[in-house]
Design a binder for these strands. Sequence first.
DNA 1: GACCCGCATTGATTTAAATCAACCAACCCT
DNA 2: AGGGTTGGTTGATTTAAATCAATGCGGGTC
Lengths: 248, 248
Amino acid sequence: MLKEKASIIPHECGDCPIRHRAVCARCESDELEVLDQIKYYRSYESGQTLIWSGDPMDFVGSVVSGIATLTQTMEDGRTQMVGLLLPSDFVGRPGRNSAAYDVVAVTDMVMCCFRKKPFEEMMARTPHIAQRLLEMTLDELDAAREWMLVLGRKTAREKIASLMAIIARRDATLNMNGTRGPLVFDLPLTREAMADYLGLTLETVSRQVSALKKDGVIELEGKRRVTVPDFNRLLEEAGDDSDGGMLI
Amino acid sequence: MLKEKASIIPHECGDCPIRHRAVCARCESDELEVLDQIKYYRSYESGQTLIWSGDPMDFVGSVVSGIATLTQTMEDGRTQMVGLLLPSDFVGRPGRNSAAYDVVAVTDMVMCCFRKKPFEEMMARTPHIAQRLLEMTLDELDAAREWMLVLGRKTAREKIASLMAIIARRDATLNMNGTRGPLVFDLPLTREAMADYLGLTLETVSRQVSALKKDGVIELEGKRRVTVPDFNRLLEEAGDDSDGGMLI
DNA sequence: GACCCGCATTGATTTAAATCAACCAACCCT
DNA sequence: AGGGTTGGTTGATTTAAATCAATGCGGGTC
């Protein structure tokens, strides 16, 4: 559990790994220089809660590396994940002062942060940032609506298959894996986190993962490493149009 | 079913009923004049499908009056509503060419439309529009995430109570009804549409509406007119923090 | 008035997933 | 090497909601 912090952290926007996908993607080099001035990095450990729902939020930022979840919790403890934050995803809402959801790191992670006030001022002066943020927000809205179909209408088996398909697809785009051949990826989530994502119990998740494995839809190496021999088969199991709308 | 069309349709942005809430809310009068030039009105009848998922979208627009639903459908017919469009809500996504969801009118309605291309050009030149659209999209994203909790973790009874609470709240803000006293509103949706919203069957919806009525949480006049004697009681039934975060 | 028709309700039965309950296997400590 | 902890699996039973099936009701129309 030893941390070596600042060493691995990039300091120049120029060689930032999320440069072309994050909220700054559209910025010109002069705009980037300004951002460079006001940004700072923070790192978090796996399991750490970055932000508590209801707390005042004095910064916004981008996930540079690692994964976090956005969750809502009811008084009696029932929890629902409402977002999965991967590298380049944006955290926080300009124009709002308190956090609406818990943000929890599921792996060690690094964030590129901006104090909210200067960022908002910069946003007002820099249409490129607002444009990109709008685009990202619209994408997130689409993802949320896709997820509403999963939560509202799919069976447990279809839910698991849908989650696998989503993670496989994200992994493929992130790592620029070519399209053909069996897909291999690591599940970033525990069974419990998967259950919170899908509106299931962890027992049901475990059973359905086993069932998909028994039926040859997926292969498992350990608990986390998944191989998908036939992506279209997985999409069928997910109840999706299996037109194979692969990548982007 | 007789229609008298253009007569009731406003023609000047100045006296538009959604002027202060729609995508044009932040526009100055000179910007409004430009919009005035490129806008046009369309009206639709109850039950009509405005837009089919997958179809090319050559316009965007705002709901002026009436209500529409955004729905997703699986091949086998299971459907999930993913949005409820009320007056001032925006339809369509700049930067995308084909529709992602079906849009269906549930009442007669009037839309204020813009051809997509000119609107996109205008948006690039007019930060006020992009700013407002970002704000509206962030609000929709919050609503979608709220809904994910409802779909994923709430019981049938809580789902119905949540829906009633949402409609009551929206109705109150729209009609500027003062806060205290019993709330009265009309359900804009059939039992089947409510079921599609909530990820339930229409039978379960009917049973739970009856149960809430029997328990005095709501009162019914006919099938559609609802009275809520105690809003906090309703929020408790919805499983929400009953801090009574009323209005806005 | 008699007949539909679309919506809604209510009842009986089935079923998918939750719940309750053991048990397993890595991994980590000192 | 032993004991604890965390995450995962598997089995037995219960339960909430789906499904299957009548029946009710208000508003049109012929």
